[in-house]
């Protein structure tokens, strides 16, 4: 038990610290690296909860894809983050006020929190009926049966995202030279080469 508690405080502590560093680091590349650290630690927390599938998703999707993409954007685009931050600082006071009000309201709400009597029965895991199987397998079994409908809509949403990305960014530029392999193959020497006899000391 004590090991688990220690691991929890370790992961949680590093998570909070790296989260803080993400928004305060001056160098955007450092921000992204701290973000990756934060993702790894939250994956650790998920492992402690026994949700190893989500933990692996965190690492594969967020670290492997999202954070690397961020890193690419930060490195490839010439954006002066210092300039962006300059304008943003003036909104800090009002942001803090709104945040504080919302936080106090939420503390108020959680202070008076109660559960509906049926909530435990309602929230009973649908995977429980499968018996002792790993939670990856249990997720797979409900994802493609009970949740097949929303799974398909998620597919449609990604489809729209793809169309949208192409519509909004892809443009046909005139005057761009493209390699046409078939034309290159079809070229004969006699079309492009001209052999000239050059007599000495007269020039071409």
């Amino acid at each position: 038990m004590i090991v688990q508690a220690l691991a929890f405080y370790l992961f949680a502590g590093i998570l909070l610290m790296s989260g803080f560093m993400v928004i305060t680091a001056r160098n955007p590349v450092h921000s992204v690296l701290f973000l990756i650290l934060a993702f790894f630690n939250s994956a650790g927390l998920f492992v402690l909860l026994g949700a190893e599938f989500i933990a692996m998703l965190m690492v594969i999707v967020y670290v492997g894809a999202v954070a690397v993409l961020f890193l690419f954007v930060v490195m490839m685009l010439d954006i002066s983050f210092a300039d962006l931050r300059k304008g943003a600082m003036q909104y800090v006071p009002i942001g803090l006020v709104v945040g504080a009000v919302l936080l106090s309201e939420l503390i108020f709400a959680y202070g008076a929190w109660s559960f509906a009597p049926e909530s435990v029965a309602n929230a009973a895991s649908p995977a429980a009926q499968f018996g002792e199987i790993s939670n990856t397998e249990a997720l797979g079994r409900v994802l493609y049966t009970q949740y097949a409908y929303v799974f398909q809509i998620a597919g449609l949403i990604l489809f729209v995202a793809m169309i949208g990305a192409i519509v909004l960014t892809h443009r046909v530029r005139p005057g761009v030279r493209r390699q046409k392999v078939s034309e290159q193959h079809a070229r004969r020497p006699e079309d492009v080469l001209e052999i000239q006899k050059v007599t000495p000391r007269t020039g071409a």
Binding site: W113, S114, P117, E118, S119, A123
Partner: peptide, 24 residues
């Protein structure tokens, strides 16, 4: 968090049986 369900019918049943003010 309060009702333990995201199903409309179940939420309606759970909330319908309450005898106190569900703050959350």
């Amino acid at each position: 968090g309060f009702t333990g369900s995201i199903d409309f019918t179940l939420i309606a049943d759970t909330l319908g049986n309450l005898d106190f003010m569900p703050f959350g």
